[in-house]
Design a protein around this nucleic acid. Sequence first.
DNA 1: GATGAATGAGTTTTCATTCAT
DNA 2: GATGAATGAAAACTCATTCAT
Lengths: 208, 208, 208, 208
Amino acid sequence: MQAKASPVKQETDRTFTESARRAQIVNAAIEVIAEVGLAKASFAKIAKQAGLSSTGMISYHFQGKDDLIQAVAAEIMRVSAEFVTGKLAAESGFRGRLRGYFAANLALLDEYPRHLRALSTLVANVRSDDPSMYGLVDQLGAITHAQIEIFRAGQRAGEFREFDPAVMVMATRGALDAAIARAGADPAFDTAACAHELAELFDHATRK
Amino acid sequence: MQAKASPVKQETDRTFTESARRAQIVNAAIEVIAEVGLAKASFAKIAKQAGLSSTGMISYHFQGKDDLIQAVAAEIMRVSAEFVTGKLAAESGFRGRLRGYFAANLALLDEYPRHLRALSTLVANVRSDDPSMYGLVDQLGAITHAQIEIFRAGQRAGEFREFDPAVMVMATRGALDAAIARAGADPAFDTAACAHELAELFDHATRK
Amino acid sequence: MQAKASPVKQETDRTFTESARRAQIVNAAIEVIAEVGLAKASFAKIAKQAGLSSTGMISYHFQGKDDLIQAVAAEIMRVSAEFVTGKLAAESGFRGRLRGYFAANLALLDEYPRHLRALSTLVANVRSDDPSMYGLVDQLGAITHAQIEIFRAGQRAGEFREFDPAVMVMATRGALDAAIARAGADPAFDTAACAHELAELFDHATRK
Amino acid sequence: MQAKASPVKQETDRTFTESARRAQIVNAAIEVIAEVGLAKASFAKIAKQAGLSSTGMISYHFQGKDDLIQAVAAEIMRVSAEFVTGKLAAESGFRGRLRGYFAANLALLDEYPRHLRALSTLVANVRSDDPSMYGLVDQLGAITHAQIEIFRAGQRAGEFREFDPAVMVMATRGALDAAIARAGADPAFDTAACAHELAELFDHATRK
DNA sequence: GATGAATGAGTTTTCATTCAT
DNA sequence: GATGAATGAAAACTCATTCAT
């Protein structure tokens, strides 16, 4: 339970006062995880990617591997939220927002393909008994919950047919994750076309 | 069929002469990967799960970790194909087959939750430069291709509206993967209800 | 909390079914601790002393450094108890036993100088919040308690004057520890003479 | 006396121009060594105890870890000598001085328990080939020698019986070290009572 | 076939120390 | 003087793999 060796002293500050080095390491970790997967993402590879001469630097800035992974997850969520929120602001109406959701997320995939690949890799390795991922799990859970509420509101507003909103959210999330995987494997993947197709798909799936 | 199972690692023999030991190790590996993820699935944990006293036995039966993972993937695909094929045989009509597809896969999830969780974990860790996963990738690619052709045929037959079949397959696959993840995290997850909801969802999404 | 990787499976067996390798490592550790102190007794030095090619072997046989240190303490206590018990058996009468105590312990020092030096080093580094040393602390506590009872019995029998037996035991133990330190620093230290002098000293200190 | 404290590491300056920072670090090191032992007393822990934000400050003020340990030993000896000398000044007669010796040292233990615990820890880790400890060893050797001479003088004066003064000094030192260890482990340890008991013990042990 | 000890490369982590600011 | 980031060596530990029995 000892205090951490990290130069950032206050838990609450962590996300805000990220030193340049910390950010650099986190971004290197994102690249490496996206490229080789979580199992083979060693400190050695991350240090090399970050241009650091030793892995000790990583241990200096992070309490351990879990802490780094946590920071990676937080950074990806931060970047994603910022990007998607900006894109979605303009949309109005439930069906319009649904279409915009896919447009925003596939634009995000276009902009940050390795961030999303790294996130998928992390999520696929999350296990319920892994305390370092509670933050990510909670965050994703909150997003899911908010989306369920939006579908519910759309149903009450008469824009959507009756369906289980939880399953619908699950399906939209799954479709996006599958797109992320496809984009990682196929460099020719057309995100814009995919966005349009998914929007059509779920428009048909939800409308009355 | 040969008279006795041989641990000699000849590619051609492998699929046919699986010794009981090999199968035992593969099943232990499936359990462990499902439980702790790929990154933490060490030979030590797998040997323990298999009730083996040393990891040497694993190295004896498999050329290396990649070989074991490959065998794990093959076994999961074998079990899944067998299960789903049996369930799907009875269905007729394109829309009926689509509904049956979800019923079959969620029944599979009910029966083999850890197999599917392990498979998801593997797929999420596959990287394009990983030769040991080519088999799995090819197999999944073939399934995807077949499903695309079915959607295409359904469109030609006038049962489905016009959409990009590749994206539709991707979305169905993604929805199932999301269901697998949910089932792993939430023991109360209702597979039958989910199957029905997904069938409705994609019926709406594909019909004219 | 996971089960240990050590080849010895049962906690209770540990002290009895020590593999030859375990014993070899423990004895190497005793030598190294006696020679360089606890702070500088690294796995590398211990492996070298034991003639092992890597430190991995130590990790294979012991759960960690604490476990090794614990085994070291247990082995020294075992050897010491066996030696001293044998020597003390013949003595009779409280004052005779007291004299015999010093004779036995200094003969022990003659026979196992590095064992005792290592033990002193360990005891000096024991801290109350160090769970791996509870065993040693308890064992030493039990010995102390038994010795206190003997002094008390000697007082009741009229062989000893009135004094605080706890302090007397502490003083005898301290004198022996000081002798151990002297012997480590001074190769010419005469254990037999010291035994006689200490016997005289405490005979005068305790008699009526 | 120089005008300003200089961190330049000249042997001759060191003892005279201790900067406040140096003293602060030395005292923090004493606390840490007493609390966690020498093996686990890292610069990081010492810096934290001293309220310093980095370990760099320690390296700046001391040539290395050995230098710091040396300074720790010197400081403890300085404090102890000052305290004990003051207490012993009043005593007269050999037997009285012997009693006073225990009173003084247990009063010292009462006043500076962590200093003495740290010293015991250091002494127990001293090895003959450790040049940085020569100073401490020599100092302790001088004290021992002086005490031997006092016992010898007491014997010549007819106040003490015949015994080996070297062993007697060793026994008194050992008894005190054992008391220091007890005090560290048992907060309820009664130093005054112990002082009286040890005085009685060694009075009986030495008188004619 | 089976065992478990042994190996050595590789992993995370900690350490004392240095250096630019 | 003081800071804290950086370094690189060394530490403990884990891993897949090999080998004699």
